[in-house]
């Protein structure tokens, strides 16, 4: 039972890590010097791994972590694109595509994947209404 709970913690923090990683990657893309020298999208998978590790070590879920990471992602996307929704879709999809090393993935599919991940994250985050000791 305890092992299962650790897996839940890892999954929760990994999803929170995805949102945080995408937010960091998109924020980093705004630094053109860096964007011209490396693939900042790599921060997304790295943040997933970091989130999973944190979830495993901490062994509990902080219910606000996930929603706050997702909120950070939405704010970073809106600020970096000036609220232009078409540009927002491009940036989220391309960052996901480049970050996970899928250059042949169409932008449309990448956007749908981002939508699924966002909705999946929200469902998971909503399932943790309070801090849970595992």
């Amino acid at each position: 039972m305890r092992g299962n709970n650790r897996i839940v913690c890892m999954a929760y923090d990994a999803l929170a890590g995805l949102s945080a990683g995408l937010a960091l990657a998109i924020a980093a893309e705004q630094w053109t010097w860096l964007d011209m020298r490396c693939n900042t999208g790599i921060l997304a998978p790295l943040a997933i791994l970091a989130g999973a590790a944190i979830g495993y070590i901490r062994g509990r879920v902080e219910a606000l972590t996930g929603p706050l990471c997702l909120l950070a992602l939405i704010l970073v996307v809106l600020v970096s694109t000036g609220g232009n929704l078409a540009f927002a879709a491009i940036i989220v999809g391309v960052t996901l595509r480049d970050g996970f090393g899928l250059p042949d993935l169409s932008l449309l599919l990448a956007d749908r994947l981002a939508l699924l991940l966002a909705l999946g994250s929200l469902i998971v985050f909503a399932c943790f209404p309070r801090r849970r000791e595992m």
């Binding site: 929603p67 997702l70 909120l71 939405i74 996307v77 809106l78 929704l85 078409a86 927002a88 879709a89 491009i90 989220v92 999809g93 932008l107 449309l108 956007d111 749908r112 981002a114 939508l115 966002a118 909705l119 929200l122 985050f125 909503a126």
Partner: peptide, 17 residues
């Protein structure tokens, strides 16, 4: 957040499509 994400991403996906 669900509402915001759906508006943001669904709206954008359809534009991209």
């Amino acid at each position: 957040l669900a509402l915001a994400a759906m508006i943001l991403l669904a709206g954008c996906s359809s534009k991209q499509q």
